[in-house]
Design a protein around this nucleic acid. Structure first.
Lengths: 334, 334
DNA sequence: GTGAAAGCGCTAACAG
DNA sequence: CTGTTAGCGCTTTCAC
């Protein structure tokens, strides 16, 4: 069933059918109804490919994320997909992993499929070296690129971020002022926001005159293996590193720290404090429950979509938007 | 840059360019190389929409899931997307929520976009009432439909499931034989696999001559609010219901049960046992860690994709495949 | 082994 | 308000 069949059965031209299909004003009510009836009777739906060819768009957005099964990214993907579809766009999902090569490959794939825009969900897409961000600016030369939790000053790329530096700075200060000086910073990512978080911690430590040299610990194992993370902390202890607080770049690392404290028989939070990040479901899994930083993911996603839609509509939109995070106090800090 | 431009610059016809693009045998090596050179020089990529129009496919599969931020579904989506892309297919993601109406709407959307197949990830898509599965058979009249964790005997729909009945039956028997008779069954879904799990528990209870009447508890609150789940169990206790074991249809419900046990000062597993389902990341979050049933999600997904690809290739494929689950013993059972 | 030409189904400019 | 027509860019017979 094509537009020709419909036009014939309705006794009008294909142009008229196309008009009613696209809600054009220039059709008489009578004609419109006639066409609509035929369309309904034959359950006709326009061919999306032909439409795409004519309009040069199929109203789809590419979503790239390293790993959609990651607790935080899964939520991001969920929010983004919902809001896109509510606005008539479909989502082409690409889980890229954390390697640059595969990110580039996915990017090219999406470009080939002629999506209308690309959303990079997760700060790991923005590298420190400028040359490694070339794939982003290249893509932005063709279509708008949206960065969630990362920022890049390049034409046609728009950034929406949480102020991770300040969040971490404030939280660190708070823990320091609660009397803990040997706070370990436990992180697993050197991504854009990863670097900002670390900087926040370091700024607070420096301000209070505490040395962070040995206390800044990068964990590079699996993102899901809590036991390995706990073991890592135990090894630090065995090697003589003293710490009575942990600030983690992610709730799961924080959870590992709580486990570590339990194994060490520390009273939490009396003798040992822990702070997580993302305010995920994991915060209520530990005992005591985890204090964590909420970076307002849904708000970020909402804003990101609004901005993207604006750009696609040809409006001038802010290149970078920053939201504030919030410390959600629970049982692991005092 | 179109195929015409390339044909002109290479001094051949568009038919020839199309042939080398599609790897046709009928091109001389010299011509092929010439065309390839031009393509490379101008970084030409064929227009996907035009291609789709001609071939009537854009090599895309629709993935529907109720909530891609759900721990289990997120993993499923991840595996599926990976395996699809490895085979040259893209994934159009649709998070439908749990209502029938919105599932139907999403289904129609995907059909309109002319995807090559649809994957329903999650047992909640198959309803008990046959009439409520009409949207699935309707879709299957057009393209293959794959069911993950659900089964339906309808032409052109293929099912891949874990044997939830047997897994639950065995696990229940095991807990009963460990000496606990008052096992509460705590569940939050009447989906296809939800019904199978419940049946497994009931079969074991009956076999051991235990009444399950008051012990079968359906929880209908939020899927993420552990506190509410724990409260629900406390209320049951306050109303006089006695139970010293909990078998849950999902790890998060099981985690709530562990919390309940802790608040009740029960020793786990000596005085109180808990069993979860899905063997998710949550199992290592509780103290002691959660015994859970692994339903081999990655295997299921792998098989589902293999089957789908086979169907798309025109091969005869099994209508229903069943895998066995496995009990992963940890600290909450004895 | 290569080219000419007829679609694929729709949109939009133009004419009336 | 409605119809005619020329694309959109590619695939695929059918000749040569």
């Amino acid at each position: 069933m094509t537009i020709y069949d419909i036009s014939e059965k309705a006794g009008v031209s294909i142009a008229t059918v196309s008009r009613v299909l696209n809600g054009s004003k220039n059709v008489s009510d009578k004609t419109r109804q006639k066409v609509l009836d035929v369309i309904a009777r034959y359950e006709y739906t326009p061919n999306a490919f032909a439409r795409g060819l004519g309009l040069n768009t199929m109203k789809t957005i590419g979503i790239m994320c390293a790993d959609s099964s990651d607790l935080y990214l899964a939520k991001a993907v969920y929010y983004i997909e919902q809001k896109l579809r509510a606005n008539g766009y479909d989502s082409l999902l690409c889980c890229t992993g954390y390697g640059l090569e595969s990110k580039i490959a996915s990017m090219n794939l999406l470009l080939t499929k002629k999506v209308d825009g690309i959303i990079l969900a997760g700060s790991n897409f923005a590298y420190e070296k400028e040359s490694e961000n070339k794939y982003i600016s290249d893509a932005a030369a063709q279509i708008p690129v949206m960065l969630l939790n990362a920022a890049l000053d390049v034409p046609n790329v728009y950034s929406v971020v949480s102020d991770d530096f300040t969040s971490m700075y404030k939280a660190s200060l708070q823990m320091l002022e609660s009397g803990i000086e040997d706070i370990l910073y436990f992180y697993n990512s050197n991504s854009y926001s990863g670097r900002r978080k670390l900087a926040g911690y370091l700024a607070a430590m420096e301000e209070k005159g505490c040395s962070a040299d040995a206390l800044t610990q990068f964990y590079q194992g699996s993102h899901e293996d809590i036991h390995a993370m706990t073991d890592y902390l135990k090894q630090l202890h065995e090697r003589g590193l003293a710490f009575h607080g942990v600030i983690a770049s992610d709730d799961i690392l924080a959870l590992a720290a709580v486990k570590y404290a339990q194994e060490m028989k520390y009273q939490v939070p009396e003798e040992f404090s822990v702070l997580g990040y993302n305010n995920s479901m994991l915060t209520v899994c530990s005992e005591p429950e985890l204090t964590s930083i909420d970076n307002k993911l849904e708000t970020l996603c909402q804003h990101l979509i609004t901005t993207l839609l604006g750009v696609l509509d040809g409006n001038e939109m802010p290149k970078k938007t920053v939201f504030s995070g919030e410390i959600i106090a629970r049982g692991t800090t005092r």
